[in-house]
Design a protein around this nucleic acid. Structure first.
Lengths: 253, 253
DNA sequence: ACTGATTATCGTCAGGCAGACGACTATGAT
DNA sequence: ATCATAGTCGTCTGCCTGACGATAATCAGT
């Protein structure tokens, strides 16, 4: 078997981004409208080509910054208000996934707090946050956003579904849900993240016991807030613990 | 931003395989010796280039069959004695990971039962099963196999480490450990798989209670065997349940 | 045939954690 | 003042796990 890399067929390599956030109690993903064929006018996940001398993670971070202005959260650096979590999701390489040529896409998953700017800036022609159910509801039979008349371009519905499933399972056993929150947040805000991502209601008392009782998960900042109404709530920052053991249990059905 | 795929730099795309099995109470990985530069004579993970019209999973399955004769387990088809579990692991694309040119490798993880042939056949120049600790023990300071004098080629040590970690965590909450067993196996054999993969000792009584008490995990075949010595043990097949809830807990430390 | 080694399997018990839910607290709105 | 809203602290019960005792059924020697 010959081992000369140059003798083998060339591929284009892209990164696609599943950028998730929680807005108004709903899990939303970033979608951009395609300005050219194929799938012109359809919504798609943000993404782009990996440059000749660029690492895959760097390419994903660059695309994320271009589309949203978010920086990738660096555990070494001091926490920034505009930091997002970024991780590789999976790679999609069906020979027919792009009608033009052979394109392999390394999808990444980004989790971001709710951004103040509802319309992410950048050079993207048109971008928006859309609830993931709208984007994944292929037949459009139920509550479909009128502006989202067609399913996502390419195999992006599949990629989005995989990213959502990754996020849903990963917040069970890690502190990743805090990536959806601002730097300082309350227990109730964190609970609403879990409820939005999982689409279930959680008992506020048991949730409070669980997250405050797990050492290293939350560290109180001393402040309080009433921005959710009701009794003032303690403010917390994410602690050093990244693994949740035992995990947070997702309720059945 | 131009969107013409042909205008972007060409990449070579490969699949690399982390093939794991349990042999003599140790977690082992398949390694092949490289016949040409770079890293000539060094051990590496099996792998090869993705063909022009080949899906990534198909390429991984083809390489797996070439190196080991194993087929990929198809849930629809009747269980075959030579079926292995195959899943995508992660993608590695550091610009300098291959000194010859830009190569992006989509690594896959395969789990196989202990093969009767100790030396996997195929066109590979030289292949062997090696305990993962030997392959990952970079400095060679401890119990290193004399034949494995150098670390793995390319970034394969990192890939192998990621694959091992995936296997270690995934058997916690799925029935994947059965992929290391023959079609029919005993509770004790399954327990020895967990012990080998995790490198810990498990209580046989609690393990027995856990796996037999989880509905759909194991289905008795009616037969018994004494191939492990001692009292005859019931034979089981893997049941339909793929998710283990609550998970099997990996002991601390 | 007996003995010991080995493995499998069943049972018991205490501690920890989760789900269900009651009770109380502190704010803003009317 | 009263109500609605949200946060926080407790209690109780049942399930699961870890630790470990006990018994069962085989094989290798003697």
């Amino acid at each position: 078997m010959p081992y000369d890399p140059a003798a083998f067929p060339p591929f284009a390599v892209t990164v696609d981004l599943v950028v998730l956030t929680v807005r108004r109690h709903a899990l939303c993903a970033l979608a951009v409208r395609r300005g050219e064929p194929p799938f012109q006018g359809r919504w798609a996940l943000p993404g782009g080509f990996v440059r000749a001398d660029e690492d895959l993670t760097a390419a994903a971070a660059r695309e994320l910054a271009e589309e949203t202005g978010l920086l990738v959260h660096d555990p070494a650096a001091p926490a920034s208000p505009n930091a997002a979590h970024l991780e590789q999701l999976a790679t999609y390489g069906d020979p027919k996934r792009d009608p033009r040529m052979r394109v392999v896409s390394v999808a990444h998953l980004a989790l971001a707090p709710d951004l103040p700017a509802p319309r992410p800036g950048g050079d993207a022609h048109s971008a928006r946050w859309a609830p993931v159910e709208s984007l994944l509801d292929q037949d459009g039979s139920f509550g479909r956003d009128a502006d989202l008349a067609a399913p996502l371009a390419f195999d992006h519905a599949r990629i989005l579904a995989d990213g959502v499933e990754r996020a849903r399972s990963k917040i069970e056993y890690s502190s990743l849900a805090t990536a959806f929150c601002p730097q300082e947040f309350t227990v109730g805000e964190l609970r609403r993240v879990y409820e939005a991502v999982w689409g279930v209601a959680l008992d506020p008392r048991n949730f409070h016991r669980k997250v405050t009782g797990t050492p290293g998960f939350l560290v109180p900042t001393g402040g309080t807030t009433t921005r959710q109404g009701g009794r003032p709530a303690q403010l917390f920052r994410a602690g050093g613990a990244t693994l949740l053991n035992p995990p947070m249990l997702r309720p059945e059905v």
